[in-house]
Amino acid sequence: MRYGDFTPFDIVLLLQGLGVSLALFVSTTLIGLVIGTIWAVIRFYRVPVLTQIVTFVAELLKNSPVLVQLFLVFFGLPAFFKINVTPTEAAVITLSGNSAAFIYVIAVSAIESVGKDQLEAARVFGLTRWQILRRVIAPQAAAFAIGPLTGLLVNQLQVTSLISVIGVMDLTKVGNILNLRTLKPFIVWTAVGALYYLTAKLVAYAGGRFEKRLRAHTAWRGL
């Protein structure tokens, strides 16, 4: 291939890169949601020891750069445990952990946002802690959390671009390759940026739609 030429195939390449970024984003978000929520439930039940561990791990993940975490997983784990970690595995592990930590923080404040007086009502009517969590807290906490969560996910989508440095063929990595080949950085990075932008807008839009549904009961507030 000659320098300087875009080919129709580059579109496919970009879309493939976008596909990889999206797949990583969606899978690590789902894993992060599950883990972050479980951590928040552990804290809700004040499980001894586990609660402290969860808080500590979340603090570590929140307060260190994702790139450093990625290097630790990709280079550090193989060196220390003598195991093989593929770039994709490292990306999934790191991004899931990072999302989990931030989702945990959102989930904890969402749980705490639910008025104590209703919880007392649920208790005196004999609901178990689990029933209160599911029927009273969860729906309201979800409505509370969806806004911050959407903001977080838009950000996490951008964070996925970091994984290109360890060789995962995501959108940014594809952009890198195209840039080196064509030496037209302005066009390449504009196209890549636009794809991230559109995806982020889509995430924000979906979040907004979802929020409206979850907050149906507050639409009337003030009457």
Binding site: G115, D117, Q118, E120, A121, A122, V136, Q140, H217, T218
Partner: peptide
Amino acid sequence: FQLFNLYPHM
């Protein structure tokens, strides 16, 4: 309850 303590999402 004095302040009703209803579940607002129901």
